[in-house]
C-alpha cells in the first residue's frame, strides 16, 4: 500500500562496523562549556528578576514599609558585602593563576575565595539566628517574607558556589588543570562573579533603601 516507503537494501542500509565518532565544531569561537554557562547565567538572571520584581511590586503596593535600617544589622552586612566583593577579586587572581599554569597560586587563591565565601555564609547564618531569636520569621509580615526569600535564595547560591569551588580546588590539587586546559576554573569563576553581583544588588535594595 505504501509505495512511498523505500525498502531495506543491505548494500546501502546496513550500518558500517568499526567507524569513528565524528564530532564537529561549529559556530562562534567559544568553548561549549562556556557557552552553556552563559545560558545558565541568563536563566539565573531571570530567576532573580522574578524575585526582585516581586519585591519591588509588593513594596510599592504596600501602604507602609518598615525602614530596613531599623530592622536589619546593616553594618555587619555591609562588611559581609565587602567580603564577597573581595572574593571576586581573589577569584580573578585564581583564574589568572590557572591560565599561567601556576598550580600553587591557583590553589592558594581558590582557597582564599572558598574561605571568604564560607565566612559570608557563616555571617549570614549568624544574622539569621539572631533574627529568628528576636522572633523575626517569614510569617511575621511581608517584609520578613521577602527578606528571607531573597537572601535565602542568594545564600543557597553562595553555598552551591562554595561547594563547586571546593570541587575545583580538589581537582587542581590533583593537577587537573594545565595552561591549555583550565576551563573548569573559569566556569566556576563566572558563576561566582554572578553570585557576587546579585548580592550587591540585593544588599542595595533590601538593606539600604
Amino acid at each position: 500500500m505504501s509505495e512511498a516507503l523505500a525498502a531495506y537494501d543491505p548494500a546501502v542500509d546496513a550500518p558500517a562496523h568499526h567507524h569513528p565518532v565524528y564530532d564537529y565544531d561549529s559556530g562562534p569561537p567559544v568553548e561549549r562549556g562556556k557557552f552553556a554557562i552563559w545560558l545558565f547565567l541568563a536563566t539565573e538572571i531571570m530567576f532573580f528578576s522574578g524575585l526582585i520584581g516581586a519585591y519591588i511590586v509588593l513594596r510599592s503596593a504596600a501602604k507602609s514599609w518598615p525602614d530596613p535600617q531599623e530592622r536589619l544589622a546593616v553594618d555587619i552586612t555591609a562588611f559581609n558585602t565587602f567580603l564577597l566583593i573581595t572574593s571576586s577579586w581573589t577569584m580573578v587572581k585564581a583564574v589568572f593563576a590557572a591560565k599561567a599554569g601556576e598550580r600553587g597560586k591557583l590553589l592558594a587563591w581558590l582557597a582564599a575565595t572558598i574561605a571568604i565565601g564560607a565566612s559570608f555564609v557563616s555571617i549570614q547564618v549568624y544574622e539569621y539566628i539572631q533574627l529568628i531569636h528576636e522572633g523575626a520569621i517569614p510569617k511575621i509580615d511581608i517584609f520578613w517574607s521577602t527578606f528571607y526569600a531573597m537572601t535565602g535564595f542568594h545564600g543557597t547560591h553562595v553555598v552551591v558556589g562554595v561547594i563547586w569551588l571546593s570541587c575545583v580546588w580538589f581537582k587542581a590539587l590533583g593537577g587537573g588543570y594545565t595552561v591549555r586546559n583550565n576551563l573548569g576554573v573559569e566556569l566556576a569563576g563566572l558563576y561566582w562573579h554572578f553570585v557576587d553581583l546579585v548580592w550587591v544588588l540585593l544588599f542595595t535594595i533590601v538593606y539600604l533603601f
Binding site: 531571570m46 530567576f47 509588593l58 517569614p138 510569617k139 511581608i142 517574607s145 526569600a149 535564595f153
Partner: peptide, 25 residues
C-alpha cells in the same frame, strides 16, 4: 524555556514559602 521558566520557578518558590512558612507573598 530558558528565559521564561526561571520566573515560574521563582513564583512557585514564593507560593511554597506562603504555604510552608506562612509567608505572605
Amino acid at each position: 524555556q530558558l528565559f521564561a521558566l526561571p520566573v515560574l520557578t521563582a513564583a512557585t518558590f514564593m507560593q511554597l514559602f506562603d504555604r510552608l512558612f506562612d509567608a505572605g507573598f
